[in-house]
Every structure is written in structure tokens, then in C-alpha cells.
Design a protein around this nucleic acid. Structure first.
Lengths: 137, 137
DNA sequence: TGTGAAATGCAACGACGTTGCATAGGGAAA
DNA sequence: TTTCCCTATGCAACGTCGTTGCATTTCACA
């Protein structure tokens, strides 16, 4: 874990700070999409909410995390595939359980190709499925 | 148009008020997904933002409009298919142009079926494609 | 046309996104 | 190891949005 955190920050040319370490640690330990509020719940004693906000923003820009669509507010999840500032790669499916509220990446599923009308160019595709997850069914 | 608005409200058993009429009219005239901010821009001289908020909430509950996922804030669009309080039906694709910022429903496209892992049950599916629309390309 | 129920406006609160600025802290070079 | 610069952080502040309570107005049916 220590290795993962240090290596991730170094790979993306970011300074090692306690806030960044703990945010990364939280993402790694809780295997689900997190909102800024979730992170604040865990870290607000130690870090200002603006710092958490800026940490998320930085991670987003560098391709360490990606935004997960949600019908209420924003959530974020670690990028598993190789992402960088230049290219993001997130055409997998997100599943939100309406019972327990958890949002997860279904890593193995890919978004089926959609044939767009003439003139439309796709850059990014987000598929959110809501329903009941395996634990709650 | 008059007919559409009156009939829509009556069909969903809602009182006819000027705010509801104008919100519906705005949705009908501008053929795209609108945020609460968009509506306030047009209507805030005449109606309180809370009234607009509650109008949207009511329309959502009754199946007159549906929520459109967006990576920044919520947007709403008219339900074209038959929707009611009981059953919503919105498995079509939404397209957001990163150039002009417009979000539209691609009515003719349906979300391809995704085979979920065992134990997962889908209730609602949202597909958002971002890129360049026909007008901007 | 009167009346009860529903819709509206206003005030207020919290959560979030965002920015500016002064201070603290990381890390490379001496 | 120490110094110094640049970056990250904390704090204050502001705007937007979602949300609720309450008093007042308005709709629609009897």
C-alpha cells in the first residue's frame, strides 16, 4: 500500500503530502466511488475541505482519479487503467445500488458501441446503471 | 402549444398555474436539456427560484420531465415516451457537446443491453456520451 | 361565488464549488 | 545538513444550489 501511494504520486509528478497520501489511501481501501463529502467525513479533522477539494481537482487533472456520474452530486474513483493528463480511458460501467447507495465500477464490463447519427463525434462515454447490487439482493 | 401544455398538466392531475405553464413552455420551445439555472435565467423575474425548484420536483415525480445525467449539475428534459409516477422509461442516449455545451436526447438511439454480473438487477440505465455535436463539427 | 386545499414567495440553512492571500512545508541544490 | 524557492495548505469569503418552514395567495370544485 505504501508503495502504491508513493509510486502513484511520483509517477504523476506530485509532491508527497499527508493529505494526498490519506486521500489516496482512502480510495484504495474503500473499494467504491467516493464523494467529497465521504472524504471529508474521514479526513476533515486533519484537513481543510478546500485542501480536499484541491487534492481531488489535482488528482482529476493528472489522471489519478476519474469522475463518476451520479444523479446526485459528483463522485470519484481511482483510475485502474493507464490514464494521464493527456488521455483518460474510462469506458466501463458504473453501478449504483439504490438500496445501500454504493457506486462501484464494474471493471470487466465495457460500454457497448453506440452508433451515433452522422456528424456526431464521441469523446467520452459514461454508462450508469442503477438498481440493486449483489449484496443487497 | 397551448393545447400541449394544458393537456399535459391535466393528464398528470396538476393545477394550471402560470409558473408551470411557462416552465413547460420553455422546455417545449428549447429543444434541449435544461438546468435549473437555465430556467431561472428566463423566468426569474416572474417566479421565485424556490417555485421553479418545486415545479421541477413536481414534474419529475409526475413523469413530465426526467433527469439527464451531467458531469456538472443536474439537467432535465421532457419525457417523450409515456411516463407516469409509476413507470419511467428513459433508456435512450443523451449527448453533451463539449463545444456548445448543449445536452440533447438522441431519441432514436437506445442503450444497448449490458449483461450484468450475477446478482445485479438493473432498474434504470443512463448513457451519456460527450463529444462534438453535428452543429459544431 | 365561497371555501378548502394546493401553490407561491420569502427567509433561512447547509452543502459545495471556487478564489485570493498569507503561511507552512517539501525537496533539490549547495 | 542546511538553505531557499516553489508548491501545498488553511482560512476567509462569496456565489450557487438543494431544501424546508411558514404565512399568504390562488386555483378549482361544490
Amino acid at each position: 500500500m505504501e508503495n502504491f501511494i508513493g509510486a502513484t504520486l511520483k509517477n504523476h509528478k506530485l509532491r508527497t503530502t499527508s493529505c494526498r497520501e490519506e486521500v489516496l489511501d482512502t480510495f484504495a481501501n474503500r473499494d467504491m466511488a467516493l464523494s467529497q463529502g465521504d472524504l471529508e467525513g474521514t479526513l476533515k479533522d486533519r484537513f481543510d475541505r478546500v485542501t480536499i477539494y484541491r487534492t481531488l481537482k489535482t488528482f482529476l487533472e493528472r489522471g489519478i482519479i476519474h469522475k463518476v456520474l451520479d444523479d446526485e452530486g459528483s463522485r470519484y474513483a481511482l483510475c485502474r487503467e493507464r490514464c494521464s493528463e493527456e488521455s483518460h480511458n474510462h469506458d466501463h460501467v458504473h453501478f449504483k445500488c439504490t438500496k445501500c447507495g454504493q457506486t462501484n465500477c464494474l471493471e470487466n464490463l465495457y460500454v457497448p458501441a453506440v452508433k451515433l447519427p452522422v456528424g456526431y463525434q464521441a469523446r467520452e462515454v459514461n454508462l450508469l446503471i442503477q438498481g440493486i447490487c449483489e449484496k443487497c439482493s
